[in-house]
Design a binder for these strands. Structure first.
Lengths: 143, 143
DNA sequence: TATTGTTATACTCTATAACTATA
DNA sequence: TATAGTTATAGAGTATAACAATA
């Protein structure tokens, strides 16, 4: 559990929105970690697993997760050691294609279901609020 | 730069709000890191520095930053080695009171100013939008 | 030469455990 | 005995650099 709490907020009259948004995000991340805990996977591995709804080259995964390629090697090792994924050579022999095993497929479905079930955005926000939040986040991100 | 991108969102029809909120938070954190970079401080040390608008026992700091006391020792070491803070014994001799030096005071003002200037919530959101965001975050957090 | 993946290494943030001094 | 702070250690997440194989 992280704790990106007080900081600028104790200085400005009200706790800053930026800090509150960061705290909300930490909460969401903690929720995700809790919901995937039964899988025994690390958070990064669970995130990668969720992306594998189709076989993907490791390179594609590193692009989508916006992380270094070497880190994908690590994650693939974890997933493979759990028997959830296989590495298969692509037509371009430099590529390794990550493909879910049947067990990986089941685990992915379980993780996905748990993540959706534990999503407090869905739980606590009405449809209208969700729409409003989406709009605000769009403005924040630069459209 | 973290990268809490695709994950559940590539699976659900639209990228999930939870993931978008987390990404926005990462952006805010990155902004903060950028704005404090000139100070040469680590992010945790800068956060602690911002809280020291008055002398504070280390224990109070660990409460406010919601982190372990041992971590505060580390942060205090960094701040002290930069000459920004002094440890002074409290009336209760177990306590160490962290007090800003004149240099620490100036650095804190600079960091605060940079953080406020670089706050994209202020920059990109109207007053009404900020109010709406605050309301939504309140609902998300459980009120 | 440029790209994919791997290996080794290292860095940041943060916690736990054991300990000292004080209360 | 309970609390404040320190020290040593560890672990998670992630990156950089150097390298091999392939294109």
């Amino acid at each position: 559990m992280e704790g990106y709490d007080s900081c600028v907020e104790d200085v400005t009259p009200t706790r800053s929105l930026a800090v509150r948004l960061i705290q909300a995000a930490e909460q969401l991340k903690a929720d995700f970690a809790t919901s995937i805990a039964p899988s025994g996977l690390s958070v990064p591995a669970a995130r990668a697993l969720l992306m594998l709804d189709e076989p993907l080259p490791m390179r594609t995964l590193s692009d989508r997760l916006a992380c270094n390629q070497s880190y994908i090697t690590r994650i693939a090792d974890e997933l493979e050691s759990q028997g959830l994924v296989k590495r298969e050579p692509g037509k371009d022999r430099r590529m390794q294609i990550l493909t879910l095993t049947p067990s990986g497929d089941r685990t992915r479905a379980a993780v996905l279901s748990a993540a959706l079930t534990g999503d407090r955005v869905q739980q606590r926000l009405s449809a209208a609020d969700q729409k409003a939040l989406g709009r605000l986040l769009g403005r924040l991100s630069g459209d």
